[in-house]
């Protein structure tokens, strides 16, 4: 690259993708919260993936490992009581539900051009939040044996 080209490039304003500090100063309407949580839920599941496969392994391999799987939640595991593992599972349930339902919202907007409006963005975001949190409460109550 010649010297003049470099100096011209320096004068131009540079637009990067958002950084961590921008996240705080941005306004967060409901659609942004759903979008941000889509990322957060995805990242949570990425980091908990070994735990998910541990559950798959132990629940499916044998009767003995199945008992190990259930006792992790009923008795405890690795020095942590069962309810901690139930909370981890509940976190996964929320993350999966949110990622799933918010993902369907994305797919709907990809395929239905008339849906990409400010109004639909808001109402569908509210729908995602309501269904996700509702199902999380219902399944969480079941997980903790409330019914």
């Amino acid at each position: 690259m010649s010297e003049s080209a470099t100096s011209t490039a320096k004068k131009r304003p540079e637009f990067y993708n958002i950084g961590g500090s921008d996240l705080i100063s941005y306004r967060w309407p409901l659609a942004s919260i759903v979008s941000g949580m889509h990322r957060v839920s995805g990242a949570i599941m990425f980091f908990l993936m070994p735990f998910v496969i541990w559950m798959f392994d132990n629940s499916i391999s044998s009767e003995i490992s199945f008992d190990k799987f259930t006792s992790a939640f009923n008795v405890g595991m690795l020095g942590l009581p069962g309810f901690i593992w139930k909370l981890v599972a509940l976190g996964l349930i929320w993350a999966y539900l949110h990622h799933f339902i918010a993902g369907i919202r994305h797919l709907w907007m990809d395929t239905h051009h008339e849906a990409t409006t400010k109004e639909f963005g808001k109402s569908s975001a509210a729908f995602v939040m309501a269904v996700t949190l509702g199902l999380t409460v219902i399944l969480g109550a079941k997980l903790f044996g409330l019914y």
Binding site: R39, G42, A43, M45, F46
Partner: peptide, 8 residues
């Protein structure tokens, strides 16, 4: 997940 994490 690879596409998603790379995006993040």
């Amino acid at each position: 997940v690879w596409v998603g994490m790379r995006n993040i």
